[in-house]
Design a protein around this nucleic acid. Structure first.
Lengths: 149, 149
DNA sequence: TTTTCATGTAACTTCAATTATTACGATTCG
DNA sequence: CGAATCGTAATAATTGAAGTTACATGAAAA
């Protein structure tokens, strides 16, 4: 199974946008993420639908952040992307007749639901502002290393 | 992404085997799981490597459980299957140069690691015996419903 | 107003991973 | 011996994300 990396992608894109004054084009974002402008538009379009970003056409067009960085959580982004399946492991048959399989599904579903709940709860506590701060810290550290050597 | 359903499969198979006296053939297990005997052999072979099941060739051959039901946890089965990736969501690039992406990966990795730890911990607490008991309860309930109606 | 740059989107292809299938060899019991 | 069964390699089908192509639409600049 190929893993869904859109959450990782949009976070990368949003933080780069946060560092820019004006709008950023799909082309620029695509280059910075080693991907394709159309993929960028498709994914960012989902964020636009919930008001996290804006897009403008034509000259001086591109993508801009439309919300407060501190108000956007990873959970919201996950939801904006359509709440894709979190797990790569699952039941063979979701609605089995077989009582044995029902028992198996029930136990596995419970365990997965619990883990997913924890993940989403964690996602709720992290905002874009937190990530931007984390990046700033890493950037400062990196500059220090450069100065020393 | 296609989800890995082998854990669900082997649990189904093991519980059916637990209900049988003699060995069960790959053909029988395959029918009961709507799959192919070769897939059964491939998957059950991984469990044999860690001593959870035995296999015998020739007439009267097939698969038997080699361990105490109460001593086999979901976690052991997960490990026997090679600890497949738990999540269908992941980072675009695991070892990025970009500091922005490093910050993003770090946060996501932490969240996923925490959720995976919870899942595996939960897997440790469930044994085949627990599942067999759960099935027995469902079976009794089902019989009761039949009697009433 | 015409040109150029950008998004919007449909349609299609590629890619990666699981699962299924085919084929044949090896072993064991009747 | 011969039928039943596992063992396994090689290959195909399937599935869903990601990438690509193509063209329409809209906005700013020249």
């Amino acid at each position: 199974m190929k893993r869904d990396s859109r959450l990782s992608s949009v976070l990368h894109a949003l933080l780069h946008m946060a560092e820019q004054d004006g709008p950023v084009t799909s082309e620029t974002l695509a280059q910075c993420m080693n991907t394709n402008p159309v993929v960028v538009r498709r994914t960012m379009g989902l964020l636009r639908e919930v008001g996290i970003v804006n897009s403008a056409k034509g000259h001086t067009g591109g993508w801009t952040i439309a919300a407060d960085l501190g108000a956007v959580t990873l959970r919201q982004l996950h939801e904006a992307l359509g709440e894709p399946a979190v797990f790569a492991i699952g039941n063979r048959n979701e609605t089995p007749e077989c009582l044995v399989e029902q028992a198996v599904n029930s136990v596995l579903d419970d365990a997965f639901a619990e883990a997913e709940a924890l993940l989403l709860k964690r996602f709720e506590t992290v905002t874009l502002a937190d990530l931007a701060a984390d990046f700033a810290r890493r950037h400062a550290e990196w500059r220090e290393t450069r100065t020393i050597s």
